[in-house]
Simulated assay, not measured.
Amino acid sequence: MHGRHGDDRPGLETTPGRRRVIGDVVLFRRLLSQARPYWPHVVALFLLSLLSSPLSLLTPLPLKIAVDSVIGSHPLPHVIAPLVPEAIAHSPAVLLAIAVGLLVTVALLRQLQELTNTLLQAYVKEKLLQNFRARLFRHVQRLSLAYHDARGTSDSTYRIQYDATAIQYVLIDSVIPFISATVTLVGMIYVMTRIDWQLALIALAISPGLVVTGRIFRRRLRRHSREAKKLESSTMSIVQEVLGALRVVKAFGQEAREEERFIRRSTEGMKVRLRLASLEGSFNVLVGLASAAGMAAVLLIGVRHVGAGVLTLGELLMVMAYMNQLYEPLKTIS
Rank of each mutant, 00 (worst) to 15 (best):
M1T: 03
G3T: 01
H5Q: 08
G11I: 11
T15D: 01
R20S: 11
R20K: 10
V21G: 01
V26D: 02
L32M: 10
P37T: 05
W39K: 07
L47T: 03
L48V: 10
S52Q: 15
S53L: 08
S56F: 12
L58H: 05
L58R: 04
L61R: 13
V70Y: 08
P77L: 05
L83D: 12
A89D: 06
A93I: 11
V100P: 04
L109K: 07
R110D: 07
L115S: 10
L119A: 14
L119N: 14
L120E: 01
K125A: 13
E126N: 15
L128M: 12
Q130V: 06
A134N: 12
F137G: 10
H139G: 05
G152W: 01
S154N: 04
S154G: 03
D155W: 11
Y158I: 01
Y162E: 08
I167M: 00
Q168D: 01
L185H: 09
R194Y: 00
Q198F: 11
A203W: 09
A205D: 02
G209W: 08
G209P: 09
L210Q: 06
F217I: 13
R223S: 14
R223W: 12
A228I: 00
A228H: 10
Q240L: 15
V242P: 08
R247L: 07
R247N: 07
A251W: 08
G253M: 13
I263L: 14
R273F: 13
R275E: 09
L276G: 07
A277D: 03
S278C: 01
S278R: 11
E280L: 14
G281F: 09
V285F: 08
V287Y: 03
L289T: 14
L289K: 09
S291V: 12
A292M: 09
G294P: 08
A297D: 05
L300D: 09
L311N: 08
L316A: 07
M320H: 05
